[in-house]
Design a protein around this nucleic acid. Structure first.
Lengths: 117, 117
DNA sequence: CGTCATGTATCGTATTTACTACACACTCTT
DNA sequence: AAGAGTGTGTAGTAAATACGATACATGACG
């Protein structure tokens, strides 16, 4: 059901065509897990790894951690912390934006970024 | 470390002063857990319960589920789903609003609610 | 005084999460 | 042809999660 593994594999293999340092073994080594484990992750034989491992993997492969976490079915712990500090506010906000088109969300992001509060 | 248990206890005891149906046993019964378990939760002897149980408990006690989940150190699964569908967008938005005062967030919520997209 | 309800102590467990360790077969290079 | 490197199969595990079941002591109540 999860496309996490295959996606990782695709990205790694793409990188590997230009750089031999992107073998299962070497990547696993740099990320700090066992090669056999990475292999299983890539084939979806096991569930996606922990947040920490997922983020390290994302960085190693030059991908956006938040996107990879999403593929792994997770939401970064630091985002959760922000939400948990003001649950009503953020719950409302997120539910409000649930169906909103990308542009609307983007406009809000920019508005707040540039906003002089 | 977690104020979840004591908060639940306080709320339940307050309700109980006016209604005997808010004993550990009866509440546990309606929520669908063992009284002994609820007792341990309230005293913080065990970690806060699962999302499902937390939400049922919140409803039973007339409290906001999102707030109770926050106290339990969790973020509602449906909010996480929303975020996971557009991780970059929502990650940006939330980090952007991390330090923003309540009013600013509130203004955004209203703006989007009334917005005619 | 008996019984009924209260909260709690104790013990146990199924399931999930997140991995490690080792060995093996195959391929590629030199 | 030998060695290095490649991916993977198999087996196992420590820790966390999320509870259930039973029994027990205490106090209130009629």
């Amino acid at each position: 059901m999860t496309r996490f593994g295959p996606t990782i594999r695709a990205i790694r293999e793409r990188l590997r065509e230009e750089d031999r340092r992107y073998s299962v073994r070497q990547v696993a080594g740099r990320v700090g897990i066992e090669p056999a484990y990475l292999s299983k992750i890539e084939r979806g034989e096991v569930a996606p790894p922990s947040e920490t491992t997922t983020v390290r993997l994302a960085r190693e492969l030059g991908e956006d951690p938040d996107v990879m976490l999403a593929l792994a079915g997770k939401v970064s712990a630091d985002l959760q912390t922000v939400i948990r500090k003001r649950p009503r506010l953020f719950a409302d906000l997120i539910r409000q934006l649930k169906e909103a088109p990308d542009e609307v969300v983007l406009r809000v992001v920019r508005e707040v970024r540039d906003g002089n509060w």
